[in-house]
């Protein structure tokens, strides 16, 4: 579907994206994680043709993306910073414009989403709150029905209910019309259940690319009485700790061998899946 080859982006003397080879196949939901300044927005921008690569290439089904309408009309990037229309434009007018500009845009579906997000149709873009603007961005992104749809922190300012509507709508539409989504987010725990595969960018480089289940397998959450848990994790790499009264949950990096699993069973400790956020923080250098 979309492929980068030795893709590099520089801003003056600063390298935002080091040479990157990436191939994202069709029909999957990818999560793009990274700390602030990791290069996520730069990567998404260059994938969408919002900017030209400094070096290397981006191709979509074999054709270059930058300045190629056959590719860019099949790619949709919704960023948290707008650009969907003029602030004085009415929402319905922007949707009508999108329907003219993008061959796959589903105007009727966009109308449904406006209602689901309870967005005022006759309002202008500039009169929307931050969260409503994000919901409108999500509406345009989902209704684009683009073969590759990317959301870059598109949920900013949305309340929990609106974020739930977003997740439900995305999943339902993905199942009805399978295509590729790439979601960049800092709400890792909330959005990671949507991901099939996770990409972690760190300091402009691809640090990790794994299926979500495999990533979760990189760690274990150990829960039980505090003293027993502390004894059990002694010598292991601890990523995070949470305590509630006498009970403690410790996230451990790395899989447990059979001996440790037997020990945990004998001690009555519970072993569970790890929080992706804890793994992410560990993999990207720990807490500041």
């Amino acid at each position: 579907m979309i492929t980068t080859s030795a893709l590099q982006v520089r801003y003056g003397d600063t390298t935002a994206l080091h040479p990157l080879d990436l191939d994202l196949s069709a029909g999957r939901i990818y999560g793009l994680l990274g700390r602030n300044g990791a290069g996520k927005t730069t990567l998404l921008s260059v994938l969408a043709g919002f900017r030209a690569p400094s070096a290397g290439s981006v191709t979509f089904d074999g054709a270059p993306v930058f300045e190629n309408a056959a590719a860019t009309t099949r790619i949709c990037l919704i960023r948290d910073d707008g650009g969907l229309g003029d602030p004085t434009d009415k929402l319905t007018d922007i949707l009508d414009m999108a329907a003219i500009l993008r061959p796959t845009f589903d105007r009727a579906f966009a109308g449904e989403l406006l209602d689901r997000f309870a967005l005022p149709r006759r309002s202008t873009l500039g009169r929307l709150s931050r969260g409503q603007r994000s919901a409108f961005g999500v509406t345009v992104g989902l209704a684009s029905r683009a073969a590759l749809t990317m959301f870059d922190e598109a949920h900013l300012g949305m309340d929990a209910a609106a974020r739930k509507v977003f997740a439900d709508a995305l999943l339902a539409d993905y199942l009805a019309r399978p295509r590729t989504f790439l979601l960049s987010t800092h709400l890792i725990e909330e959005q990671s259940p949507l991901f099939e595969q996770v990409l972690i960018l760190h300091q402009g480089r691809l640090l990790l690319r794994e299926d979500l289940d495999d990533l979760r397998g990189r760690g274990v959450a150990v829960t039980g009485p505090a003293t027993l848990v502390d004894d059990f994790v002694s010598g292991l790499t601890v990523l995070a700790e949470r305590r509630l009264g006498p009970t403690k949950e410790v996230t451990v990096f790395g899989g447990l061998d059979d001996e440790h699993r037997r020990l945990a069973g004998r001690a009555g400790l519970t072993l569970g899946p790890v929080a992706v956020q804890d793994l992410f923080i560990h993999l990207t250098g720990g807490l500041p």
């Binding site: 309408a69 860019t72 009309t73 650009g83 969907l84 500009l101």
Partner: peptide
């Protein structure tokens, strides 16, 4: 002068600078 902002909108909706 406002055409530059319009260009941004066109690109966001999948069109190109060349178009």
């Amino acid at each position: 002068y406002s055409a530059a902002t319009l260009l941004t909108t066109m690109i966001v909706h999948g069109r190109t600078r060349r178009e």
